[in-house]
């Protein structure tokens, strides 16, 4: 019993004691969650359809994947084109994407949002507060 309530401490392994405990708890909890999920499904029987779907029924493919692509392009563009140009580009395309229509007013709104936001952020962060910009 004493062994169970005592942790062997060795300096070279200090960094592993707590992660081992946390991983063990995670595995136990994970196993219980998975077991409960399958147990519930078995109880409901095979007639019950799977009720989980990752995306909502009416999900907007263009806006979701479009914004995800723009988000992941942004850091690459920043490294190549600098903060101002890449941010104006991101803001313009993202606002336009979220409006969802390519019309004169939408283009105007997107451009205004892009230019105003970029310059205000550049001025407030970069000039006023002297924060490092990409």
């Amino acid at each position: 019993m004493e062994d169970l309530l005592t942790v062997e401490l060795s300096f070279s392994e200090y960094h592993l004691i707590f992660p081992r405990i946390v991983i063990t708890i995670l595995l136990i909890l994970g196993a219980i969650i998975v077991f409960r999920y399958f147990y519930k499904r078995m109880k409901l029987g095979s007639s019950k359809k799977r009720d989980f779907s990752f995306f909502i029924a009416t999900y907007d493919k263009t806006k979701l994947f479009g914004s995800a692509i723009l988000l992941f392009l942004y850091p690459f563009m920043m490294e190549r084109l600098g903060f101002l140009i890449s941010t104006i580009g991101l803001m313009f395309f993202m606002t336009l994407l979220f409006i969802g229509k390519i019309k004169k007013t939408a283009l105007f709104t997107s451009l205004t949002n892009a230019l105003a936001t970029t310059f205000v952020i550049w001025y407030v962060f970069g000039q006023l507060f002297d924060i490092t910009l990409p």
């Binding site: 988000l71 942004y74 850091p75 920043m78 490294e79 903060f83 941010t87 991101l90 803001m91 993202m94 606002t95 979220f98 409006i99 709104t109 949002n113 892009a114 936001t117 970029t118 952020i121 962060f125 924060i131 490092t132 910009l133 990409p134």
Partner: peptide, 26 residues
């Protein structure tokens, strides 16, 4: 559609700046 693009840029700038310019934070 106006608010979220602004939030994204602010988040990116903030993350980049937090350790004085580390792209890994972005």
């Amino acid at each position: 559609y106006i608010i979220f693009p602004i939030i994204i840029v602010m988040c990116t700038v903030g993350s980049y700046a937090i350790n004085n310019g580390v792209m890994f934070d972005v």
